[in-house]
Design a protein around this nucleic acid. Sequence first.
DNA 1: AATTAATGTGTAATAAGTACATATTTATTA
DNA 2: TAATAAATATGTACTTATTACACATTAATT
Lengths: 243, 243
Amino acid sequence: MTEKALQQLKTAETEKISHLDYFNIGITVDCVILGYEEKELKVLLIKSDMQEYSGLFSLPGDFIKPDEDLEAASYRVLKEKTGLDDVYLEQVRTFGNITRHPSGRVITIAYYSLIDVKNHKLQLDLNERHWHPVNEIKKLAFDHKLILDTCLSRLRQQVMEHPVIFNLLPEKFSLRELQELYEAILGVELDRRNFRKKISIKDWLLDIDEMEHNVPHRPGKLYMLKKQFRNKSVKTGAGLQFA
Amino acid sequence: MTEKALQQLKTAETEKISHLDYFNIGITVDCVILGYEEKELKVLLIKSDMQEYSGLFSLPGDFIKPDEDLEAASYRVLKEKTGLDDVYLEQVRTFGNITRHPSGRVITIAYYSLIDVKNHKLQLDLNERHWHPVNEIKKLAFDHKLILDTCLSRLRQQVMEHPVIFNLLPEKFSLRELQELYEAILGVELDRRNFRKKISIKDWLLDIDEMEHNVPHRPGKLYMLKKQFRNKSVKTGAGLQFA
DNA sequence: AATTAATGTGTAATAAGTACATATTTATTA
DNA sequence: TAATAAATATGTACTTATTACACATTAATT
């Protein structure tokens, strides 16, 4: 019962101990910021400066402010780390094991976002933050490896049903680029002809009658995602068939 | 950066104001406890005793204790409300809009669980808690209608790919009962022959060579879920096909 | 001008999904 | 006891989706 506890809380405002009982929990957001570069899916990591995890990398995150919505906190972290704000962002899961943070009880809400690396060259001047290929990551600070894996698993699900993958690509792209991105995310090789058939059935793409430039081979046609599919989040799940 | 804020926190242990800045957020779990009865999906609700929501029902929930895991808090609420502990339980989403709770900032982690109503007659002696058909629920206290809808949407997704639905049924059940349950959850009518074909392909069921009793018509065969599919949660999503 | 490396497209075979009808079994009723 | 009612149990043709697989075309490079 939320109400009962809140009553206790109100009387506890002055009683310090009881107040701390209920509120001695930190709550943060952690951001899995994903980009696509050189045919690899990459995640933005920062060096952990905690003694317990010296030398390890961790996901960017921060405490949520008492007057700040969850998404707002994620966007703030994202803005600080990348300078971007108009990006795909989605909540994945909340992690809160009592032992997950060495300094005390901290519950974290994990978000993942997809950004177009080429279109937004972020300043990586400080060697504080770097892109890391997700396939090469073996260990992270805290439970961040688990968080990363959970996000990747969610991404793989989303990618099959929703047009979210396009947030990782430039506005205009070739079918080859799109297929390579699917392959990078799903970790499988796809047949070019079947892939194109499946994509064309979904009717997501607009043929803009332009060609690739500066490729060392025959240029492919360029496409854009149709406007009605440009989403910055997927809240509700689409239904599957069971008739 | 989690670390920076934690440093601030440590020095803030004595400085009351700064401490409250970071920790003046309540964190709860809310439980969407679902059961199946009389061909309807039902949810366990309690009367809200907050003035702001007098007359409305709300989901059972409680504050998380500083030394308590998230799932443990959910199981505690579940145990209090139903007496059950060995049930299917899964995290769905965290809700934290700053205006969602009239008494202050409260972030809640929503879980849903599936229980077999017939096998576990809970004491509904107090008229504090009751089963409500989910289709008849128009309005709930707080943002609990949104939480309920989000859980139902997640349930509909899970049901298509994972054998979770069996947590709502007795150990032994007929194919008709199973089909009616799918129909109740998905809100559609299914063709009996196609349904049976699809279920048999999944190879989830064990024919136990027993028949229904006390039905006013020809009794059907009874089945059980095979042991290897009896799960109390689904953490990782299964991959779909895109070859 | 020849070569290379990619783009672009089609078809046959298999698997899955959908629509639909009849015989069988048990409980109930006359 | 026989007839009736209401459900179980099962199969087949049709459509759609998935998979496996090959050849002609185009532009850049040599």
